[in-house]
Write a protein that binds this DNA or RNA. Structure first.
Length: 400
DNA sequence: GTCAATTCACATGAAAGAGACCACGGTCTAGTG
DNA sequence: CTAGACCGTGGTCTCTTTCATGTGAATTGACGA
């Protein structure tokens, strides 16, 4: 009989965390270090909204984990607080990347309507119906100004095409008393080049770029958060610096640094260490990477798994480079053998491209002259995960 | 030997289809007074 | 008479297929030295 009491009772004393929440991704701190200039800039652009004047559209750009979202939301909150009594302003935040929530034109409008207090079915209505309803809702609201924050706006445009943005911009001319401003947040530099010039010029009336944090700034951020998150004396010397260094290498991604610190804490806690040591950071780094990859593989659709399995098998067979054709042939046979419907080569090609995007494989389009043009595919999964990944595939595909 | 045309094996794009999901309005059915 | 069950239609959304077009360099073949 296991003595569970002992485990459960001691969990409180043993915990290294004071408040783990602080290290979670969605936590928004009171103060945002090293972003004063940006926050001021945003605030000055949005300030006229307090007087009920339409503000310029704003485009915020910066790599992931540079504090874009958090800064914009911070300013938004302050504005909302200050305008509460006048009812003249309304700000809504939408993350366009959230699958099944706001990644299509329909769903973005539906989400906006929901936030305004309206009801709209998840599907089944014509898009322009939703569009009309949205206009109604806005007109019915008493606020004179409506600011929409579109986070990860590049994702939306990539999926939907940019005339959705064009519509949004044009809305103002159809609206009587209410005016709409848009704040777009993106981490893709090339995004602005992709879109229609008309949309581009009106979206980026104002532009703010968030530079990556450097290692020192990261340390500062981490230290502040660590103070709140951990019990005192838990974090060993150098841990913060190491975390910061890791993240700085990854283009100054603060989110990544915080993740690292949190996972390191969890690891130390699990092996009942009373302190987080530097080696735990390394372990955390591995674990994060590992979990991410295995998670992707495990949850990938069946066809993706079949393709991936083909790649696994082929890399074993011939080390000297494998190409699209090889993968497809193998995959096709595999499907036949296992009674799965085989996809077309066109589709498999896209799947390979997606793997490349996620980083499971690294593919390079090469031309072998008369022998054609194809992707040269290499597995990009760390050596020590290959067997494990393979096992996952085998069990989830029910092979052998 | 040199140069442009050819050619391969895909990559990449665009459009359209299949099937799951859903709302809405109309029709049918059974239960009620 | 009416509430609820049950269609049919028409919409979105994801994953695919079909059809079309694009593409980089090895190969070919004509050409001139």
């Amino acid at each position: 009989m296991v003595n569970l009491d002992k485990i459960f009772n001691s969990v409180g004393d043993r915990s290294l965390f004071k408040n783990k929440q602080v290290l979670q991704a969605n936590y928004s701190p009171e103060t945002i270090p090293h972003r004063d200039k940006e926050i001021e800039h945003i605030a000055s652009i949005l300030a006229p909204s307090l007087l009920g004047q339409k503000t310029s559209n704003l485009f915020v750009y910066g790599l992931t984990g540079t504090g874009k979202t958090i800064s914009v939301r911070h300013v938004a909150n302050e504005l909302t607080k200050r305008s509460e009594d006048t009812d003249s302003l309304r700000i809504e935040y939408i993350n366009c990347k959230l699958k099944k929530v706001a990644d299509t034109e329909y769903r973005i409008f539906a989400e906006l309507i929901n936030k305004l207090g309206g009801e709209v079915p998840k599907t089944g209505l014509p898009t322009d119906e939703v569009y009309k309803k949205f206009i109604d809702m806005i007109e019915k609201n008493k606020e004179k100004l409506f600011i929409i924050i579109l986070d990860e706006i590049d994702q939306a445009v990539k999926k939907i095409s940019d005339d959705f943005l064009y519509n949004l911009m044009r809305l103002n001319s159809e609206l009587g008393k209410t005016q709409i401003s848009i704040i777009g947040i993106s981490n893709d530099v090339k995004f602005l080049e992709m879109i229609d010039p008309r949309v581009k010029s009106s979206l980026s009336e104002e532009e703010i770029v968030f530079p990556p944090y450097n290692a020192l700034q990261l340390q500062d951020i981490l230290r502040k958060r660590a103070e709140e998150a951990f019990k005192s004396g838990v974090v060993s010397d150098g841990v913060i610096a190491k975390c910061a260094a890791y993240a700085a290498r990854e283009h100054g991604d603060a989110r990544r640094a915080l993740d690292l610190l949190r996972v390191a804490g969890e690891i130390a806690e699990r092996i009942s260490n009373s302190k987080i040591e530097i080696k735990h950071i390394d372990e955390a780094n591995d674990k994060i990477e590992r979990d991410k990859i295995l998670n992707i593989i495990e949850n990938a659709p069946k066809q993706f798994q079949l393709v991936l399995f083909s790649i696994f098998d082929l890399t074993d067979k011939f080390k000297e480079g494998i190409f699209t054709g090889d993968v497809f042939d193998f995959y096709y046979d595999l499907c036949k053998k296992t009674n799965n419907e085989a996809l077309t080569q066109r589709r498999v090609s896209d799947i390979l491209a997606e793997f490349d995007m996620i980083g499971l494989i690294s593919a390079r389009v090469i031309s072998k002259g008369r022998q054609g043009r194809m992707r040269e595919i290499k597995l990009a999964i760390p050596e020590n995960l290959v067997t494990k990944s393979r096992d996952i595939l085998i069990s989830s595909l029910d092979l052998n």
